[in-house]
Amino acid sequence: MVDWMWGLHVEGRIIKAADKRLNGAFGEEEMRKLHLVGLSCAHPDSAERPSIRRVLQIINNEADPIAVPKMKPSLVFSCSLTVEDIVSDDEESKTTA
């Protein structure tokens, strides 16, 4: 579902994701805003997702919408941990004994 929504967003047709049962009875800008908030909440990098407070502020027009990239971001893993950071001194002494 998320990939389908990103596809519509990339094509500039995100409004097409609106439920057909609404029969077009909605404000297009409001629907676009809701869809973009949804995409920002489904960002592959959890650190980039808005807080629920921010989501509510956007929906209530109390905050500016989040800029959603045109292309779906890729999830990138980075780790600056070393083995020493992961293994405690206590565990290390057991493995060397």
Rank of each mutant, 00 (worst) to 15 (best):
M31R: 10
R54K: 14
L81E: 14
E48D: 14
E11A: 12
T95H: 11
L22V: 02
E48C: 11
M1E: 06
A63I: 08
G7N: 11
S40L: 10
R53C: 10
R49M: 09
K20V: 13
M31P: 06
R21Y: 07
E28M: 11
S40F: 08
R54G: 03
V68G: 01
H35S: 03
P69Y: 12
A63T: 14
A97D: 09
S46I: 11
M31S: 13
L56R: 13
S40A: 15
K16Q: 04
E28H: 08
K33R: 10
T95W: 10
V83H: 12
I66M: 06
L36H: 06
H35L: 07
G27H: 14
S78A: 13
L56N: 15
I14M: 03
V2S: 15
K94Y: 11
K72W: 00
V37M: 11
D19I: 02
V83L: 14
L81V: 14
I15C: 06
A18C: 02
I86T: 14
A18W: 04
M71L: 15
V68S: 03
V68K: 04
E30C: 02
E30H: 06
D3A: 12
M5G: 00
N23E: 09
D45Y: 08
R49S: 02
A97F: 14
T95K: 12
G38S: 06
L22A: 00
M5W: 00
I52N: 03
D64S: 12
E62V: 11
G38A: 01
A18F: 03
E84S: 15
E28I: 15
A18K: 01
R32H: 03
L39Q: 04
M31I: 15
A42K: 00
I58S: 04
M71G: 01
E91L: 12
K70V: 08
G7F: 01
P69T: 13
M1L: 04
A25F: 08
D19G: 07
H35E: 05
M5I: 05
G24L: 02
K72Y: 07
D64A: 13
A42D: 05
A97G: 09
S74W: 12
W6F: 07
S88N: 11
K20H: 08
P44T: 10
D45C: 15
V55H: 00
S74T: 13
A63E: 09
F77R: 10
I86M: 13
Q57C: 09
R49H: 13
K94L: 13
W4T: 08
D90I: 09
L56F: 12
D90E: 14
L56P: 03
V68Q: 03
A18E: 00
C41W: 04
V68D: 05
I58E: 02
D85T: 08
M71V: 07
K94C: 13
A25P: 00
K72F: 02
H9M: 02
E84A: 13
V87R: 10
L8K: 11
E91Y: 11
R32W: 07
R49A: 05
I14Y: 07
R53Q: 09
V37G: 02
E11C: 03
L56V: 14
V37E: 03
S46Q: 11
R53W: 11
C41N: 01
K33H: 04
N60L: 15
K70E: 02
S40M: 06
D19E: 02
T95Y: 13
D3W: 09
M71H: 03
L34M: 14
S78R: 12
D89P: 06
N61P: 04
